[in-house]
């Protein structure tokens, strides 16, 4: 029991500690692929340190919502992180039905962030908020068609148990899992505002989704937003990597190795995708998301009838 709690705490600390590194890794790889030297992989840490020491400027029209939003964002994302396994270490929060809590607790972060964006009273933020609400809506089904379909097949409803139940002994099941992991990747791209859905590096407010929502924040507020953004990216990366734990044959060491190598491969994939594609037109994004949903439905349908 104690060892499980300790493992859970270590997992959480790993996620909190290494999430900026993961983001830095993606940026570095992207730079290399486009023929630049790029910022060091530690750059996100420097950025966070710089933001931490800056003065905070709030918009005059903003209210208490803007004050509490960064805090709630950070806390909820951190709580979502405590539900995820690293290797086969049991996460700190794990009970039947936590998959629903996971989806909804991130919903709380989104709710308060949209409000904080609208709190500024600027139409740039409003535009970002409206887009966030719209695209999040189409992203929700993808989550349930990937992780949820594995849950429904196995009859389990705790994230840890769901991943633990994956066994690669049946060819149709392997195909099913692989396709699930593909739609999980499409989901991660959307939720973490990466290309081709959103461009984190764009310089025009009108073309942004997530970045524009935090435009009028600075100092410690921006620090919290950025940090929770890094954690969220890492969370979705872990959701993706965890599909490959069955290869570890349930040994901790192999599991951790899969985690490390998986993170690197995923970062490389994200960097490659961002290098070779450009951002979609805004009006095409729902189509992209519905495409990912359709993959999920078809996948499950085929699996149900070929069993």
């Amino acid at each position: 029991m104690e060892i499980e709690i300790l493992q859970g705490i270590i997992s959480l600390l790993i996620i909190l500690g290494f999430s900026p590194l993961f983001a830095g890794l993606i940026n570095k790889l992207k730079a290399v692929l486009t023929g630049r030297i790029g910022a060091p992989v530690w750059q996100p840490y420097y950025d966070l340190k710089r933001l931490f020491k800056k003065e905070t400027i709030n918009a005059t029209v903003s209210s208490f919502v803007s004050r509490i939003s960064p805090v709630i964002n950070f806390v909820t994302v951190a709580v979502a992180a405590t539900m995820l396994p690293i290797g086969f270490w049991k996460p700190l929060i794990s009970f039947n039905g936590d998959i629903i809590l996971f989806a909804y607790i991130l919903g709380l972060a989104r709710f308060i962030q949209i409000l904080a964006a609208m709190d500024i009273g600027s139409s740039f933020e409003g535009m970002g908020a409206a887009r966030e609400a719209t695209f999040a809506l189409f992203a929700e089904p993808i989550f349930f068609f990937t992780l949820g379909s594995v849950a429904f097949i196995s009859g389990l409803s705790s994230i840890y148990d769901i991943y633990y139940s994956i066994q690669l002994n049946n060819i149709s099941y392997i195909v099913f899992i692989v396709i699930c992991s593909i739609s999980a990747f499409l989901l991660a791209v959307t939720e973490c505002s990466r290309m081709p859905v959103d461009d984190p590096n764009t310089h025009l407010e009108l073309t942004m989704i997530h970045e524009v929502m935090i435009l009028d924040n600075s100092g410690i507020d921006l620090f919290l937003y950025q940090y929770s953004g890094y954690i969220k990216l890492f969370i979705y990366a872990i959701l993706e990597i965890s599909f490959f734990y069955p290869f570890s044959a349930q040994s901790y060491l192999v599991g951790v190795m899969i985690f490390v190598i998986g993170s690197f491969i995923l970062a490389l994939t994200l960097a490659t995708v961002e290098t070779i594609t450009s951002r979609f037109k805004m009006k095409n994004i729902p189509q992209y998301l519905l495409f990912a949903t359709a993959i999920g439905i078809l996948n499950l349908l085929i699996y149900t009838f070929t069993k």
Binding site: F52, K53, K54, E55, T56, I57, N58, A59, T60, V61, S62, I120, G121, S122, L215, D216, G219, I220
Partner: peptide, 12 residues
């Protein structure tokens, strides 16, 4: 925020 300062300013 007390340590590093906080002020309000018009929306950008």
């Amino acid at each position: 925020q007390k340590k590093y300062g906080r002020r309000t300013s018009a929306t950008w």
